[in-house]
Every structure is written in C-alpha cells, then in structure tokens.
C-alpha cells in the first residue's frame, strides 16, 4: 500500500503541497482530483522522488520508498515523454527492461500491450510518426509493460477519443483487478466517477476530500434533487429550508438540499405545483463533490 504522509513542498512563495496525505491500496483505483495548479502533479512526482519534499514522506508497505521500490511502479507523466525517433515496440520493451523485465519477455509484453490498444501494426513505426492518440497509447503501454505494484497516471485520458478512453479505462480496471494500486488524475469527472473506487480531492496543496467514493458521497451534508416536468418551472421549492438551485432549464430543475431533507415531502410539494414527469433524490455526484470541495 502506498502512503503519502504530510507532503509539503514550496517553490519560493508558491505553495505546491501543504501537508497532503493520501493512500492507495492494492487493487483499488484512486481518482486524484483538483483544479489546475492544486498540487496533483507535484504530489505524483514526489512519489518517484522527482520532487524533493520540504516535509512529509512517501511509504510503500510502511517503508520509505526508494529506487528499488519505484522500479515496481508504473508512471505516466502529465507531459508525455517518449523518444521520438525510437520505434514504438522497442520503446515499450526498453522501458520494461529498465523495470527489470528480461529482453525476450519485454518484447512479448510490448507486443501484447500494443495489440491490446489496437496499434500492433505500428510497433515498428517511430513514435514521432504516430498520431497524438497513438502516442498516448504507447505512453500508457510504457507504464503497463511490466506487472507493476502501483500505477501512477497523470491525466491518462487527456486528448483521447471516446473509444480510446473506453479501452484505456478497461485496461486500467484490469490492472487494478490484478492487484495493482492505481492513482490517476483527470479533469473528466464523469469518467473518474465511473472508474474509481476511492477519491482524493486536493486544493491549494491540501487534501480536502479523501475516502471511498460511495462513503464520501454518503457523508456529504447535501443531497441533490432533480425534477422534470411542468412542476419544474414553478417556484414551489422556495419553501424548502436550505434549498439552492444548482441548475435550471426549461421543465427541469436541479436543487441542492440538506442531507436530512425528506424526499417524500419534497415530491409532494413538487406535485402540488404541477405535473412531475421525473424525480431523483441522490447523494452528490463526483462533480458535485468537487465543486463543493473547491468552493468550500
């Protein structure tokens, strides 16, 4: 299990990390969220010792992480990094050998992952001749080309088409199912919500939300109500204590209410205002949680 305790890093006056802590358990997918500049990339780099910490420590199974441990971690940095003139297949195999895989096995795994991403026919092509999406696939294959204990993926889905996102999502899920811990960042919150088991939200270098996604949602002090139909256009909800309009469209309204609110009573109120075609009462989505956390 990866444990980051009190990570702190300042670049001059800029605070990148301020006592950030998080854990990644084997077999769990952790969505690492935060606005731009919140400290996600710095935290991910610190796991590999690429950033020197002012304070805090990174542990693997309770022991400080060193080179022999990070050799068992797969990494996909935010800024993609590949040798432009090296063939894709050789590139994946090369990085696998750096992680301790023998050359024959590395070549086999490179072929496997390129085939899995549907670019096996480009294995002999130089990376610089590949499209952006295919370079992204090669970059992920580099991170996957050995059976890692931990995958750290910084924005792995950025710039990919929906089909590629689906394949990559499946692959990462399979890695977690194999037993690897997965820490990944993304701004595609709907996607993260569908993939992650746990969530960590970081803001101004501090972790503001952390835990299993369902538990975090359930622990929220808010619930969200969506009403569609004629009733949505009325002002009936003004009578609900603490209710806020989150989104309003024609014949649809989304409200934030206290977690203790009675959904039956609210439905009755809505029906009193007009026809109700649809009614949902639910904990916050990941998107809602994110907005709540960074606006707090």
């Amino acid at each position: 299990m990866l444990t980051c305790e009190g990570l702190t890093r300042r670049f001059g006056d800029v605070v990148a990390l301020e006592g950030a802590s998080l854990t990644v358990e084997p077999g769990r997918m952790v969505g690492f969220l935060g606005p731009n500049g919140s400290g996600k990339t710095t935290a991910m780099r610190s796991i590999f010792g690429l950033v020197r910490l002012d304070a805090g420590r990174v542990l693997w199974d309770g022991r400080p992480v060193d080179g022999s441990v990070t050799r068992r971690f797969g990494y996909m940095p935010e800024s993609r990094g590949l040798y432009p003139r090296m063939p894709a297949g050789e590139q994946v195999a090369y990085f696998a050998t750096l992680h301790g895989v023998d050359r024959a096995e590395a070549r086999r795994r490179a072929n496997h992952w390129l085939a899995r991403f549907g670019i096996e026919e480009r294995a002999g092509s130089k990376v610089e001749t590949l499209s952006h999406g295919n370079q992204q696939r090669v970059q992920l294959a580099v991170a996957l080309a050995f059976e890692s204990d931990l995958l750290v993926l910084d924005e792995p889905f950025a710039g990919l088409d929906p089909l590629a996102v689906q394949v990559m999502g499946e692959v990462v899920r399979e890695e977690a199912a194999r037993g690897a811990g997965v820490l990944f960042s993304s701004h595609q919150l709907d996607l993260v919500e569908g993939l992650c088991d746990d969530v960590v939200i970081i803001h101004h270098g501090r972790v503001v939300v952390a835990g299993p996604l369902e538990a975090v949602r359930a622990a929220s002090p808010h619930r969200y109500i969506e009403v569609t139909g004629e009733a949505a256009d009325g002002a009936w909800y003004r009578g609900i204590p603490g209710a806020e309009v989150v989104e309003e469209r024609r014949r649809a309204v989304r409200l934030r209410v206290d977690a203790q609110a009675d959904p039956g009573a609210i439905l009755a109120l809505a029906r009193g205002a007009g026809q109700v075609d649809g009614f949902r009462f639910e904990p916050p989505s990941l998107s809602d949680l994110f907005v709540e956390a960074v606006r707090r």
């Binding site: 780099r45 590999f48 690429l50 080179g67 990070t70 050799r71 971690f73 990494y75 940095p77 800024s79 993609r80 990094g81 590949l82 040798y83 432009p84 990085f95 750096l98 992680h99 580099v142």
Partner: peptide, 13 residues
C-alpha cells in the same frame, strides 16, 4: 525537451 527524462528518472537514478 521531449520530457522522456521524467519517465526515465522515475525508474533510474
């Protein structure tokens, strides 16, 4: 400049 150094330094000293 092509950022491969970051991937390399994640596994190499």
């Amino acid at each position: 400049s092509n950022r491969v150094a970051e991937v390399l330094l994640a596994v190499l000293a």
